[in-house]
């Protein structure tokens, strides 16, 4: 049984069609990277998957049920969402904020905080537990948001720019964590602008890359696809080239006429 199934899904926003004809399936152990220019509806697509936005056409199923037929608590048991905006500007402490991610379990706050210990460790925020959310730096907020995502304990994870605001060291930490969850059998859908961070995840054949353009899905392929630079160049309307360092391949935008050609 797939974790998530989108069939011919469309979304309308303010009278115009933002997305149409989107069909995707996420199974346990799948990792999908969603790439695309600003404003094409990547974040809306994640909200649709989380059941926060209803489709105007087609259907979105979590497991066997359409998202609209599930209560918020039932949806929260199947899918966790990391939004792009980190709104935790409150006077809540980090552990109180992360504990709210366990709302679906119906525990008291103190029990929920105890059950968050593993998530605190995984996202490396144990030292921040007593801090107020409003006093955290951008990078700390990001790690706290990831801890909350893990505390919800779902099989499907939706990540909107998970490495935003993080220095290279923590970017690596977060992507290694995602890789670990992926290998452990979670289904992961990740919206990102930095395709190279995906290279940290290994097993390029199994990493699915979805190119989202204006109106819908332009291509679906894997990270190991040799023609990925050309596909991304067309998607972003700017030349993307591949640089190699040993076995690793890095895709970067070519700047100026002197940009090196991809070695064949």
């Amino acid at each position: 049984m797939s974790l998530l199934d989108l069939r011919d899904v469309g979304v309308r926003r303010g009278g115009r069609e933002l997305l149409s004809g989107v069909s995707l399936e996420v199974n346990p152990g799948d990792l999908l990277a969603i790439l695309g220019p600003n404003g094409v509806g990547k974040s809306t697509l994640l909200r649709l998957m989380a059941g926060l936005v209803p489709p105007s056409a087609g259907h979105v199923r979590l497991g066997t049920e359409p998202t609209g037929a599930l209560s918020p608590r039932e949806r929260a048991a199947r899918v966790a969402w990391l939004p792009q905006e980190r709104s935790s500007d409150s006077a809540q402490t980090v552990e109180e904020f992360v504990a709210t991610a366990r709302f679906r379990f119906g525990e008291s706050t103190s029990v929920a905080i105890e059950h968050c210990a593993r998530a605190f460790g995984q996202a490396d925020v144990t030292g921040l537990r007593a801090r107020r959310c409003g006093t955290l730096s951008g990078g700390e907020r990001q790690r706290v948001a990831v801890a909350a995502l893990l505390a919800q304990e779902t099989d499907l994870l939706l990540l909107d720019e998970p490495a935003n605001h993080l220095d290279p060291s923590y970017q690596r930490t977060i992507y290694e964590l995602i890789a670990k969850l992926w290998r452990a059998g979670h289904g992961v859908v990740c919206v990102t602008h930095d395709v190279n961070l995906l290279a940290h995840l290994g097993d390029a054949d199994r990493l699915r890359v979805i190119g989202l353009g204006a109106g819908g899905v332009r291509f679906q392929t894997t990270f190991s696809d040799e023609s990925l630079p050309e596909k991304l160049s067309a998607l972003f309307d700017t030349r993307i080239i591949a640089l190699r360092d040993g076995r690793a391949r890095y895709l970067v935008p070519a700047i100026g006429e002197s940009a090196p050609r991809e070695p064949s």
Binding site: R47, A50, L52, S71, P72, R73, R75, A76, A77, V79, A80, W81, P83, S87, S88, S90, Q92, E96, F97, A99, T100, A101, R102, F103, R104, G106, S108, T109, Q152
Partner: peptide, 21 residues
């Protein structure tokens, strides 16, 4: 109380965590 605690972080995040806002 638990729902209100989740709501502090915003409607959408609370909804995604299971609160019927």
């Amino acid at each position: 109380v638990r729902g209100l605690e989740a709501l502090v972080a915003g409607d959408e995040l609370a909804e995604s965590r299971g609160v019927h806002v």
